[in-house]
Design a protein around this nucleic acid. Structure first.
Length: 377
RNA sequence: GCACAGGUGGCCGAGCGGUUAAUGGCAGCAGACUGUAAAUCUGCCGCUCCUUGCGAGCUACGGAGGUUCGAAUCCUCCCCUGUGCA
């Protein structure tokens, strides 16, 4: 059995509060998932993540395949054990790297030939290979191998990308179904297995998005993601694509928007009915000195904070805001101290997780369930 | 005292007769960051003024003179620093 998804409250505007039950733990949704590409959410310890209440984090197929290698991780008992993270995890398929490493890739129907960004060596990634790697890693949720369409993309380019993504989705699913039982922790966790999500592409063309969604839904994945967003398009388009695709996805399965967003975006999407989101923004921005706060953006490097003894965010009760001043965080940043990245990251993640916590509370308090009555179409 | 080597914008350090207000790096100031090739990247960084422009003026390469149409760059003297020899 892969995942279980129980909707516990819903609003007329589409938002829903649910419990996502995964082999390594239960996730309260809507959820924001910190990104831990290389087996670490950069700059913070697993202890800190647990204390912040993170229930699920990401890992990346491409990066972990290159280093330390998926077979090595399998031999060490899988990704959870290797990185000492007992809770749920999701691995991205490497599809995004096809997009972001575009200078080092060559795409064909078979898959993608990559040049390693580490040593220049050549590697072929196919849907089957991505599944093999993700099964070896053993995250609770694996993602289909897709091709993230760039922006802007012509209609024909988006169509071609969609064609690849849907073909690869079918191959991913077939291969995954044939091998999902091989995950290292299966017996240990009472025979439970990984789940696989499909990824909707289609560029910024609503009809292509619709077509892609319908074809993926017919394949019956365990959950669905909307990919190819936040790749440089205007925000109105992001919203339009989400609004278009969301209603087409099965109501009783998790819906995941990949790679978003700013604080107000994740709140907005969650209220629309997006169950899962991930984004490097809070962690990357933190390491670069940008704090997200209830008072807006705080660039902690700014001189005006040099002697500011107030907490980073007066309205925040995270461990960083309870203990440290803006002046100290600025000093750490100026001095290039590693602790700077750590503290900034803890705060930003606390801020993001706090947003989702409040959204969940308000969804749970919402007048009940249109959702529990038959879907309006 | 003698002999070498040097003294360049906050610091380090290029330049060695003319597109040089002066390459770089650091420091400083500001901005960006959306399924992480990101503890990264971008801009500004002598002073003043404005119609903010590949704008105008001023001051700058230890000091003072000099050569030259033109000097951070060549010459003379002086001051200072480092190394070696006495």
């Amino acid at each position: 059995m892969p995942l279980q998804f129980h909707i516990v409250a819903a609003t007329d505007s589409g938002g829903r509060r649910a419990r996502l039950d995964l082999p390594h733990g239960t996730v309260q949704t809507p959820v924001f998932m910190p990104v831990g590409t290389q087996g670490t959410v950069k700059a913070v310890t697993q202890d800190a993540l647990e204390a912040l209440g993170a229930e699920i984090i990401l890992g990346n197929t491409y990066h972990l395949y290159l280093r330390p290698g998926h077979e090595a991780i399998r031999r060490m008992g899988g990704l959870h054990r290797f990185i000492a993270w007992p809770r749920a995890m999701l691995t991205d398929s490497g599809g995004f790297q096809v997009f972001s490493l575009n200078a080092l890739r060559k795409v064909s129907d078979e898959g993608v030939r990559f040049r390693s960004h580490l040593d220049g060596s050549s590697h072929l990634f196919t849907p089957e290979h991505s599944m093999d790697v993700q099964i070896a890693l053993g995250a609770d949720v694996a993602m289909a191998f897709d091709e993230c369409t760039e922006y802007p993309a012509s209609r024909s380019r988006a169509q071609e990308s969609l064609r690849l993504t849907t073909a690869w989705a079918g191959r991913s699913l077939n291969h995954f179904r044939a091998h999902a039982g091989e995950v290292v922790w299966r017996d240990e966790l009472g025979g439970r297995t990984q789940s696989l999500f499909g990824i909707v592409q289609g560029g910024m063309y609503t009809d292509l998005r619709r077509e892609c969604a319908e074809r993926l839904v017919a394949m019956e994945f365990d959950g669905y993601a909307i990919g190819g967003l936040s790749v440089g398009e205007p925000r109105a388009l992001t919203l339009e694509m989400i609004a278009e695709v969301l209603p087409l996805l099965p109501r009783d399965k998790p819906r995941y928007v990949m790679g978003v967003g700013y604080p107000d975006e994740i709140e907005q999407y969650a209220r629309m009915g997006v169950d899962m989101m991930d984004c490097v923004l809070p962690t990357r921005a933190a390491r670069h000195g940008l704090l997200f706060t209830s008072e807006g953006r705080v660039n902690i490097k700014n001189k005006k904070y040099a002697e500011d003894q107030s907490p980073p965010d007066p309205a925040c009760d995270c461990p960083v805001c309870r203990r440290y001043s803006r002046a100290y965080l600025r000093h750490l940043m100026q001095a290039g101290e590693a602790l700077s990245g750590t503290l900034n990251t803890i705060h930003n993640l606390a801020f993001y997780l706090g947003i989702m916590q409040r959204v969940r509370q308000s969804l749970a308090a919402a007048p009940q369930p249109a959702e529990l009555t038959p879907p309006r179409v």
